[in-house]
Design a protein around this nucleic acid. Structure first.
Lengths: 211, 211
DNA sequence: GTCTATAGAACGATAGAC
DNA sequence: GTCTATCGTTCTATAGAC
């Protein structure tokens, strides 16, 4: 019993070490650029152990994305207004493209490549990224819906959906800018983006008031 | 002399066939997913001919990007206002993510991956993409500058720069959405994006007028 | 210029001793 | 659970006949 628990603990520690290793490698080299040998080297364990803990490379990245998403959810449980969110995500994109290994920030740096690599269509890690992407979108949409209390529910729903779409495009766009090394003051443009979306909302609400 | 000219013509035809082949493959599979064997097969020529016309895979993609950019420049020589540009680029992103082989649209579908794959840092094709990206940004910025005739030059310059940054983020963001398969009405959001940026400009011009 | 055959390297994954 | 050795495949690139 004692031996079993000890072994179990050691196993958990190793598994965690491997996840941290693949995280640090994937942020720098992406999915295809990260080799199983790299992961083994960075974790300090032999490659055989990596395959003992994870079925294959695909499954390794699936569990990595899950791990990152869990961290993100905990960090973003308290949802401010749209300006807050844009500040966090757009300024965060600069941090993620630096070689930081904050799992929540790393998620995007790793995940966005999956969006473009359509030849990975059957890849389970890509599918997991797309599923998490959808889940985050719903999360943001449903929170934004409560931001427009003085209009009918269907109007608020459409407005929230539109703002979520625009907000997602802007954050993704600035992540591209960060990855491409564009010389950009992300904090400044986060506020500019918020200004733009807020004036869009104001116009719509005014139109509704007149209708 | 006649023989020489004939050979020269045949060579040009083959080279063009290879470029078309790599274009069609790269749109579907990206840089890393496109193998030299694929290109040879799609062009109808043996792999030896591909290496005869192009130094290596890297150089092949450099010339592909140049070819696409040339086509884009000719298609976008007449520059309308910002709304026109957003419509063209954002609606075009949906087309590019479908497997069309319009070189101008394909450029983005192929190029954006280079932004994210930082492990291709020394890759000449990635560097060419980044260079073209910069050139396009300057092109857009300098055209936008003429859109604000009633303000001092430095104000117009800052405004044009900001709008170019925001516009680039939005178009890149919607390209991500297209690649990720998000269910999005791109034509509608292109206009919404234009609305947002125009109201941003209006606010700024009003602020300047009062200053 | 065209074509075939193959070298050479990298990678994912497994076998099997411990 | 850990570790090493290695198999099988895929890819870039070249050699050399035509």
């Amino acid at each position: 019993m004692v031996t079993r628990r000890k072994t179990h603990r050691a196993s958990e520690v190793s598994k965690r070490a491997i996840l941290e290793a693949v995280l640090s490698r994937a942020v720098e080299a992406g999915y295809e650029g990260t080799t199983m040998a790299d992961v083994a080297r960075a974790s300090g364990l032999p490659i055989g152990s990596v395959y003992w803990h994870f079925q294959n490379k695909e499954q390794l990245f699936v569990e990595l994305l899950d791990y990152c998403f869990e961290v993100w959810k905990q960090a973003n449980a308290s949802f401010g207004d749209m300006r807050d969110l844009l500040r966090r995500t757009i300024s965060g994109s600069a941090a993620a493209s630096a070689s930081l290994t904050d799992p929540a920030a790393a998620f995007w740096s790793i995940g966005l490549v999956f969006a473009f690599e359509r030849r990975l269509e059957d890849n389970l890690a890509r599918q997991r990224y797309l599923a998490i992407r959808k889940e985050m979108f719903q999360f943001v949409t449903s929170h934004l819906r409560t931001s427009y209390p003085d209009v009918p529910e269907d109007v608020a729903a459409e407005l929230a959906h539109d703002m979520a779409v625009m907000g997602r495009a802007l954050t993704d766009g600035f992540r591209v800018a960060a990855a491409a090394g564009d010389d950009t003051d992300f904090a400044r443009y986060a506020d500019l983006a918020a200004d733009a979306l807020e004036s869009l909302v104001a116009t719509r609400l005014k139109e509704y008031g007149h209708a």
